[in-house]
Design a protein around this nucleic acid. Structure first.
Length: 107
DNA sequence: AGCGTGACACGAC
DNA sequence: GGTCGTGCCACGC
């Protein structure tokens, strides 16, 4: 926990990292976990995104699974919203998948 | 201090 | 290219 925020440092790192993902690109849960300093914690990343407040300014919609699929329950409001946001950024889904070249890579 | 849990990852078949 | 099993990490009870 960081003393004042009440948010763990690891979680804060995930938020900071996610905020740096540019529009038009996506990251997998595993990538995000690794980039944020918690390699292997992909599932955990999903759990914290799930708890994001509805008014969050974080680009949560840029996070998909390693196969380029939206992980949220199909046809759920959030799922549709994610597709809407991605589409608005020029990211399209073909048969439910986002092209691998859309992933954000560091190097 | 355990134990179950999950918007995952990945290798086998 | 599906489906299934196993591994993993941080979190909450």
């Amino acid at each position: 926990m960081s003393a004042r925020s009440g948010v763990s440092d690891k979680k804060a790192a995930v938020f900071l990292t996610l905020r740096q993902i540019p529009s038009g690109r996506v990251v997998s849960y595993g990538q995000l976990a690794r980039l944020a300093g918690s390699p292997g914690a992909a599932r955990w990343v999903g759990s914290i995104l799930r708890q994001l407040p509805a008014d969050s300014t974080l680009p949560w919609h840029r996070v998909v699974n390693s196969r380029g699929e939206i992980a949220l329950p199909p046809a759920s409001p959030a799922h549709l919203e994610q597709i809407r946001r991605l589409t608005r950024e020029g990211v399209e889904l073909n048969r439910g998948k986002i092209a691998l070249r859309r992933f954000f890579w560091t190097r």
